[in-house]
């Protein structure tokens, strides 16, 4: 298996002095489905955004498809970003545009300026977008405004937008954090299915440990900007969960399953 992404000694210090990532290194191989877990503020989002340089890292390198993303010019960066799809917690669709217009946004990076500005997508792009919408059961919403859809439906549109880029790598930032359990399962299943079918490598930030164990081929645990775990899901023990989340697993809600604990009694006393 060949490497698709290699992060070396990545450090990000924000201007307010907070160190979000300190000396993070990881290598991702082609076709992996990696879940990054960790509590809020552990640096998951920062790590993901350093990979496509939505956030400029302070130190270190991110090697993707043979080039160091941190050293690219802005034109080169735009070109390479087309190969990296991204999915967001809040979907980030343009609510006033139609569902298919949002899906076609994935093509903007490939088009010439004038057609891109005017939204003159090619017939083949339109056909491809429509096919994807049909495959994912969204064909009855094609020309509906994106803002009128439910959260789960919007997230599916977000996935299709990223797929339209023909990406080699998919970055998903908390894709199910604001969805109900049913939609969450649907969306995670769809991400897994679509990326596996197309051989797209996938990195997913997750809050839910259970979802990480269920879908990922590899789990990376982050705590205060450091990697504290990097292995297959079956190696994730309670001890390690305690290390990642800084608490007893019995006191945590893990994927909707509340471990029976003494939390309630502690609060009363």
């Amino acid at each position: 298996m060949n490497k698709i992404l290699s992060v070396k000694n990545l450090t990000k210090r924000y201007r307010n002095g907070i160190t979000a990532l300190s000396n993070v290194s990881m290598e991702i191989e082609h076709g992996e489905f990696v879940a990054i877990i960790g509590s809020s503020g552990s640096g998951k989002s920062t790590l993901l955004r350093c990979i496509n340089r939505l956030i400029q890292p302070t130190e270190g390198s991110v090697e993707f498809d043979g080039s160091d993303i941190c050293k690219l010019s802005s034109a080169e960066l735009k070109k390479i970003r087309r190969k990296i799809g991204m999915i967001f917690q809040h979907h980030n669709l343009v609510n006033s545009l139609t569902v298919i217009q949002n899906v076609l946004h994935g093509r903007l990076g490939y088009m010439r300026t004038i057609p891109a500005v005017l939204g003159l997508y090619s017939d083949s792009d339109r056909r491809k977008a429509l096919d994807l919408l049909e495959q994912t059961g969204l064909n009855s919403f094609v020309t509906q405004r994106a803002g009128e859809l439910s959260g789960g439906q919007q997230q599916r549109v977000g996935i299709l937008r990223a797929l339209m880029q023909n990406p080699m790598l998919m970055l998903c930032d908390e894709p199910i954090a604001s969805l109900d359990p049913h939609s969450a399962k649907l969306v995670m299943g769809l991400i897994k299915q679509l990326t596996v079918e197309r051989g797209i490598t996938c990195i997913v930030n997750l809050h839910q440990v259970e979802a990480a164990v269920r879908y990922a081929t590899r789990i990376i645990g982050l705590d205060h900007g450091n990697i504290v775990f990097d292995d297959t899901p079956d190696k994730l023990t309670d001890d390690i969960i305690r290390k990642i989340y800084g608490g007893n697993p019995h006191d945590l809600i893990i994927g909707g399953k509340m471990h029976e604990g003494t939390e309630a009694q502690e609060l009363v006393s």
Binding site: M86, V94, L108
Partner: peptide, 22 residues
């Protein structure tokens, strides 16, 4: 919303395209 801009940026769209499309 900043997220709309971020989403198109992550797909490799330039500033002009982001302005007109998002």
């Amino acid at each position: 919303p900043e997220g709309n801009i971020e989403a198109l940026k992550s797909g490799g769209a330039s500033r002009v395209r982001i302005f007109f499309q998002a």
